[in-house]
Design a protein around this nucleic acid. Structure first.
Lengths: 193, 193
DNA sequence: TCGTTATGATACGGTTACGTTCTATAGATT
DNA sequence: AATCTATAGAACGTAACCGTATCATAACGA
């Protein structure tokens, strides 16, 4: 009998976790990875520093946990629609995320962190690879069905479409207006038939 | 008479500058912007800390000076050749830079720094905008001359091409093999005629 | 050679942050 | 109500690093 009557979970624990993680994410967005300070997180969360160390062993663990939150968004539904419509839907979603969201705010910190710590790097690259898969599959299917021109390479096309959106955010300081996604697809893929 | 016989310039000054800036750039690549430490730069350069402060007023000034070095590369010659060839030349150059160079090493730090400090942000965005101009102009000319398909928007096409290269570096951890630039152009622009 | 000056080393006070430990308290469970 | 436990807050020793100052040295120009 596996000690069934364990004590119920204290709600204070989960509550602390949430408050601290939210503060950590805000800190990452504002301060970045390199100057990230646990004491600032504690102050921002209105929490004792010791509470943070009760939940995570050290700074890196907290940072990793905070970054993990970024990847809890609902992906757009790709069940039905023409390939071109689905493509537009998914890219509009990406553009909106990159334009304005906790993800967008933390993106530079995430990139920087991935460069400095190998665990965060694995995390970052693995997640990005997963996130790209549906898009690449969609484009590949579109090419196969003749909806997209045969000139395309699915992976390169995905890189180009995503790249355009991310490049603007990171290198020009502008955001990619989700409304312009149609024009982007026209440019890279071709106009709708 | 403007005091002509000024003392000749002490070569130690320029020598210190170079050694320190090189060390600062290496530090930015390794440590990043947030945790950048002048004392580490001094140690790395084999230089007294006071020497650094004799040349730059503070940490930010040194960082800015170091980043400025990144933008002293020779751009590829665009004097002659078919539009497609010129495009390939310029993108191969970009891909090589992003794949392996001080610029590539410091790129995450630069992006992070641009996010945290407004002066560095202006610097980063201005330079990037300047660097994009020839590419956009080239594509626009190619469209006008009929060498590139009319479907294209010059700015979006430039974003896509550059974006693909940068996206790979920053989000996938892989580099974009300069040899694959031809395939990238085929995908976004179309095969050569 | 001789005065000049940039330098490396060292020390300084001040600040910040790490990660640990303690205590009284407020909030849980039973 | 009685008990348990997670918490906030403070203090701690340690370490790093800021920007400044001092000083003997060595490289420089003249």
């Amino acid at each position: 009998m596996p000690a069934a009557a364990k004590r119920a979970v204290d709600p204070r624990i989960e509550r602390s976790r949430q408050v601290i993680l939210a503060a950590a994410l805000a800190e990452l967005g504002e301060i970045g990875y390199g100057a990230f300070a646990i004491e600032s997180v504690a102050a921002r969360a209105g929490v004792g520093k010791s509470t943070i160390y009760r939940h995570w062993p050290d700074k890196l663990a907290l940072i990793a946990a905070a970054f993990a939150i970024l990847h809890e968004g609902a992906a757009p539904d790709l069940a039905d629609g023409a390939p071109r419509e689905k493509l537009e839907r998914i890219l509009r979603h990406v553009a909106a995320m990159v334009a304005d969201s906790p993800f967008s705010v933390c993106l530079p910190a995430l990139i920087d962190a991935a460069e400095r710590d190998s665990a965060l790097r694995r995390f970052h690259h693995r997640f990005q690879a997963e996130a790209r898969k549906p898009l690449i599959g969609l484009i590949a299917a579109g090419i196969a069905s003749g909806d997209f021109p045969a000139r395309l390479d699915a992976e390169l096309a995905a890189l180009s479409l995503l790249g355009a959106i991310f490049f603007r955010r990171l290198m020009t300081g502008e955001t990619f207006d989700p409304a312009r996604v149609g024009a982007l697809i026209d440019a890279v893929i071709g106009a709708p038939r």
